[in-house]
Design a protein around this nucleic acid. Structure first.
Lengths: 343, 343
DNA sequence: ATGAAAGCGCTAACAC
DNA sequence: GTGTTAGCGCTTTCAT
């Protein structure tokens, strides 16, 4: 739809000037007399002129917009990250476009393609849980599109990244469960190819071995769709509950998985933490008021978004190609509540 | 950024054809021979040609994109609505841009302006809680921008709307509290100017008077920022708790308010429902596992999004200006759980 | 200080 | 069946 009724051409015609003079006057060029500038800007204001950003983008190849790709905004962690991104974007006059992959590689590809073709100046992305191959992003990166990864990153592309200390977050969480007296600690996590999975898994394993407990692979369950499918989480929980040596605690590795496991334990009438304790990564604001109050590993989501956008703007605004990149690792916070109370 | 290295011009040069022939071949025009079409499309595929939608938009004044404006994606209701919108948008080849107002009129204006200037074909919007004047939308509507309102609508613009039956949702909720034995039922709601506020307030009042209970205005609290500010909700709760005739139940009118009130009652060590019962509008998936399990009025959020997008596409695709509009009113569902159990 | 004109990538009248 | 050309709204040399 073309809603901008008045164009630079209209102004030129009315004021008996050329389009270029009007364009320059509007952009406050030194070539134009103050008198003309005043004339033009007043006419423009009076007629509510707005430059057409589509035409500007086409011409300048720059859009003052950045794209965001997350798996789902229906997730406190990502919505908080987005708020952090917005906090710096708006301040700098950038607009953002939010898209969701729903953990699908195809949708990730589609969204990234659409965003880049609508001329974004940069991309902020957390990979879908299906994504194994990042060639689509590699290609864009090589063409010079500024990209910053957060949360779920890839080693295959050298650019800025903002993540949390997944290893220590998981280590401390598992340690807390051990210190609370739990011995058979299960772990339900995302697909192995996700960057976050490895760090959290290793932290969990290390805490066990450091405390003289052997890692039992039967206690480790992967949700291939990153928790998008309630069914796969249910299957994991059911398998754990059916074990002869049933785990006495579950450590969950992502937002959706954590809250879903809580629901499933309720559904199965499992007393928490008496029969099975629960502690997991989640940024829900409701930890305190869940039944029982939920022990959580919380990520500084707003800060992740803020720093990601700052780094992205650094690349966008840089005069020279950026070749030196950094990976920021932020700390997580452990909230010990009743779901992991000493049994 | 211009990332589309290969353009229609490049293809034309390589194949020794004109740009228009290539353009037509790509668009499968009847004027072009099969042989040429094949040649062009194969070359395009081989070189990963993608049309530049910016240029297409500029030319055609059409973008195959729609904009969404909600107060915050950090809200289960809106994120579910968005999923509903996406479900039909993707099927029809449309992309969506999500923006947030954070209940600010200024941000609403800014987002709407940005979206329309980036050439969207239509707008789906739920008003911010600050919005009293809809002139900015009125102007776009008059210029012919297809708009569909959902959730928080306005009477001042005649277009399609998708809402829920707020009156009956609130009536039935209040009735349930009355039937459970509660007598002094407070109501915490959004600002009075929001469309949803009136319906819910009236349903609440009607249920009281139908049951011989006089409406007491001191029991009705408005949160001027729609629950965005935790502080204003806290103040409302504190005022209610400090009353000599303290309410024995609270009926809350929106997602954020409901969960915040639950947190606040916990914080004040109020036994739910023994001291104060709680029931409210919310689309949280965690109702069952809250402490106590939370009685809720749930909206068909996905369906709201789906129908809104269908109606919007109806306007977009219509050959003639649409003048006959409808308002769809969907039912809410009441889930009776422990927070409103008979005391 | 101002204007003419080219061009961003594409589409579509209108030629040939 | 294919090519030429103008133009979407804007910016930007390059003239004047």
């Amino acid at each position: 739809m073309n809603l901008d009724t008045i164009t630079i051409r209209d102004i030129a015609r009315e004021l008996k000037l050329s389009v270029s003079t009007v364009s320059k006057a509007l952009r406050d060029s030194y070539e134009i007399s103050e008198k003309t500038k005043k004339l033009v800007s007043e006419y423009a204001a009076a007629h509510n002129y707005r430059p057409n950003p589509i035409a500007q983008s086409l011409k300048k190849g720059q859009s003052k917009s950045v794209g965001i790709v997350v798996s789902s905004v229906d997730n406190q962690f990502y919505s908080q990250v987005i708020n952090g991104i917005e906090s710096v974007a708006y301040k700098e006059g950038y607009n953002i476009f939010i898209t969701q992959t729903h953990e699908s590689f195809d949708l990730e590809l589609k969204n990234v393609t659409h965003l880049t073709h609508r001329s974004i100046d940069g991309l902020l992305i957390s990979l879908s849980s299906e994504t194994k191959d990042v060639e689509h992003l590699q290609a864009l990166h090589k063409k010079g599109l500024p990209i910053v990864f957060f949360d779920r990153v890839t080693d295959d592309i050298n650019t800025h990244k903002v993540i949390v200390d997944n290893f220590n977050g998981a280590y401390n969480a598992t340690l807390h469960l051990l210190q609370s007296g739990y011995k058979r600690i299960a772990h339900i996590t995302s697909p192995a190819q996700l960057s976050i999975t490895g760090g959290r898994l290793n932290g969990y394993k290390q805490a066990l071995t450091d405390n003289g407990i052997a890692v039992d692979e039967r206690y480790i369950k992967y949700c291939m769709h990153g928790g998008k499918d309630f069914d796969e989480i249910e299957q994991a929980v059911n398998e754990l509950l059916a074990m002869k040596e049933r785990p006495d605690a579950i450590f969950t590795a992502s937002d959706r998985i954590t809250t879903s496991v809580l629901s499933l334990l309720h559904k199965n009438n499992i007393a928490i933490p008496q029969q099975v304790a629960l502690l997991g990564f989640t940024n829900t604001l409701l930890g305190e008021v869940l039944n029982p109050s939920l022990s959580t590993v919380v990520q500084p989501a707003f800060e992740i978004g803020k720093q990601s956008m700052e780094l992205l703007l650094g690349i966008i605004k840089s005069k020279h190609p950026v070749t030196k990149f950094e990976t920021r690792v932020l700390p997580t916070a452990l909230f010990e509540r009743n779901s992991s109370r000493r049994s």
